[in-house]
């Protein structure tokens, strides 16, 4: 029996030690690579946010701006991403951060440590500082196998495509011939703002990291402007009043400069069925509207 236990221990200890060592080297190496996320020198403005930014700002129309939006990106990851980018790029002068009502909802917490978060969050693993890496591991302990698989995949992606790291995101919109649809909008509103017919709580975690982004930009002397990307009217009228108020309060308390792209009228075919993402056509018009606004503000 003693021999059996000893042999079992040796059998498992060898690969565990070996894999741990290799993993540590691999993580260290990719993390070092991720530090070097330098952007072209002419890029002085970056657009950070979730899929709303990713789908809305077509940066091929911008001269000195780059879209770094990532689907389902929470402010926790945006904060670390901005920190990493500012450290590697002295030439960044301005950050446009996507900030809409849905960013306040607790449904966003699912994208950090909820079900399915492991697939979304692995791409950020290597750019996080060590203590946050451990935190991310802890959040994903429920799905160890898929999480480890996806961080290995993300690491390999970094090696292959550096410096186009996955966590940097970018403009991507293939939505054509779609339009806003009442049923999908209602479903989307329910999903984002309600839980069992009651309004969802605010995500204090996301709000906390929004404030951290504001402080970081102040500390680094980088101008921060928040952008509200367009959403369909049918969507807008269904947003709970508590969210509208909270949104205004955050803008006011933090003295945030805001660009509201909702002020430009867009037709239904500029939206995807859910009413809060833009189609390719919508992105084109919105980016042009944004350029108009920027040139109006800075003559």
């Amino acid at each position: 029996m003693k021999k059996f236990i000893n042999q079992l221990f040796i059998f498992f200890a060898i690969p565990i030690l070996l894999i741990s060592l290799l993993a540590a080297i691999f993580i260290y190496y990719i993390s070092l690579l991720s530090v070097n996320c330098s952007l072209p020198i002419h890029i002085t403005e970056i657009y950070v946010g979730d899929s709303h930014i990713k789908k809305a700002i077509n940066d091929s129309l911008l001269t000195n701006g780059k879209n770094l939006g990532c689907s389902a990106e929470t402010y926790y990851f945006s904060y670390h991403k901005i920190k990493r980018i500012l450290a590697a790029n002295d030439h960044i002068e301005k950050i446009y951060l996507g900030f809409s009502y849905h960013n306040l909802s607790s449904y966003f917490n699912n994208f950090i440590y909820g079900k399915g978060a492991h697939a979304l969050t692995s791409k950020y693993f290597y750019m996080l500082p060590l203590n946050q890496k451990l935190q991310l591991l802890r959040w994903n302990l429920a799905h160890p196998r898929t999480f480890f698989k996806s961080i290995v995949k993300a690491g390999m992606h970094s090696v292959k495509y550096q410096p186009d790291f996955e966590f940097l995101g970018g403009y991507d919109n293939t939505f054509v011939y779609l339009k806003a649809d009442t049923l999908s909008i209602n479903k989307r509103i329910q999903h984002q703002y309600f839980n069992e017919q009651k309004p969802r709580e605010f995500s204090m975690f996301n709000i906390q990291y929004l404030k951290k982004i504001i402080s970081l930009c102040e500390a680094k002397n980088v101008e921060l402007t928040v952008i509200k990307t367009p959403s369909n009217d049918l969507y807008n009228v269904q947003i709970p009043i508590s969210y509208l108020n909270k949104y205004k309060k955050i803008l006011y308390e933090n003295k945030l400069t805001q660009i509201d792209l909702n002020s430009f009228a867009l037709t239904d075919d500029c939206f995807t069925p859910d009413g809060d993402h833009l189609t390719k056509k919508g992105a084109m018009l919105t980016t042009r509207n944004l350029i108009k606004l920027q040139t109006a503000i800075i003559p």
């Binding site: 060898i14 690969p15 196998r145 898929t146």
Partner: peptide, 18 residues
């Protein structure tokens, strides 16, 4: 023997369904 076992375990972990 151990290499064969490790190889099978690796295949199970990499390609096995949950």
């Amino acid at each position: 023997r151990y290499c064969v076992y490790y190889l099978i375990i690796a295949i199970v972990l990499l390609f096995g369904k949950k």
